[in-house]
């Protein structure tokens, strides 16, 4: 038996909205410690990694490890049927070929349940090494979304240059060039609005804006986003999922041919 109840059901809605355009299908691995997901987009340029701890749920039970193959646009459609304030419970039996979703209104006057077919998926699992990154930037997620959107007007790629003074995003194309420079915040009164750069070594990397714009769909999940970078390795774009865990996107860099 698997059952996970989340009073803040809107987190599920936001999470699905964050990944459904990037991934068509994925396996939700459920165990006694929580729910994880790892999947690459169809062109294998990016990887999504989700971890939700059992402790973060209001009720959590998983008697036997369960891998649920899910068609994400379908799950997203069902999640849209939940109200923003609804409590969401996900349930499945051990040998299930379906997953049940129960949406309860806060006042308990409306309860909806949906059942969705699971799909057979055979996906490879990648080992993500523990890495010490050269630069880690924390910034408001809305600012990151804005920068990715704005620079997409100029070109397909963004060059992210990080030094101890701050971080610079640049794009160029037929119409010209654009640079957006963010300096490290002088005071950190409002933690959510701060830009914090933690640098061991300056880096300058090139990434496809198309993917960063997909990642930025996770903006409603968290006020801050964390970018981790080292020379010639995938960029990590991390959004915290409240007390539950995290949503991480890995993006392979563009490399000099």
């Amino acid at each position: 038996m698997f059952e996970a109840r989340l009073v803040q059901g809107s987190l599920w809605k936001k999470l699905l909205e964050s990944i459904k355009d990037l991934l068509n299908e994925a396996i939700f691995d459920c165990s006694s410690t929580g729910i994880t997901l790892q999947a690459m987009d169809s062109s294998h340029v990016s990887l999504v990694s989700i971890s939700m701890n059992s402790d973060g749920f209001d009720t959590y039970r998983c008697d036997r490890n369960l891998s649920m193959g899910i068609h994400l646009p379908s799950l997203s459609k069902i999640m849209k049927c939940a109200g923003n304030d609804d409590i969401i419970t996900m349930k499945a039996t051990d040998d299930a070929d379906t997953v049940s979703l129960v949406f309860e209104s806060q006042n308990n006057e409306k309860v909806s349940d949906y059942e969705m077919k699971l799909i057979d998926l055979d996906t490879e699992h990648l080992g993500i090494p523990e890495t010490e990154y050269s630069c880690v930037v924390k910034m408001p997620s809305s600012e990151f979304q804005r920068i990715c959107r704005d620079l997409s007007q100029l070109g397909d790629s963004v060059v992210i240059a990080c030094t101890k003074e701050g971080v610079k995003f640049s794009a160029s194309g037929e119409l010209g060039t654009g640079n957006i420079k963010l300096c490290q915040s002088a005071s950190t009164d409002k933690e959510e609005e701060a830009v914090v750069v933690d640098m061991n070594e300056a880096v300058c990397l090139t990434f496809a804006l198309r993917y960063l714009n997909f990642f930025a769909k996770a903006t409603p999940l968290s006020a801050q986003v964390q970018l981790s970078m080292s020379k010639d390795v995938p960029l990590v774009v991390e959004y915290k999922i409240s007390e539950l865990g995290f949503l991480r996107f890995y993006l392979a860099p563009k490399i000099e041919d």
């Binding site: 690459m40 062109s43 294998h44 340029v45 990016s46 990887l47 490879e124 699992h125 990648l126 080992g127 993500i128 090494p129 790629s157 090139t206 496809a208 390795v233 995938p234 890995y250 392979a252 860099p253 563009k254 490399i255 000099e256 041919d257």
Partner: peptide, 14 residues
């Protein structure tokens, strides 16, 4: 010119 890398270039299958 720059070429788009893939994730499997960096992370091995477990």
């Amino acid at each position: 010119s720059v070429k788009q890398g893939t994730i499997s270039q960096f992370f091995a299958t477990t």
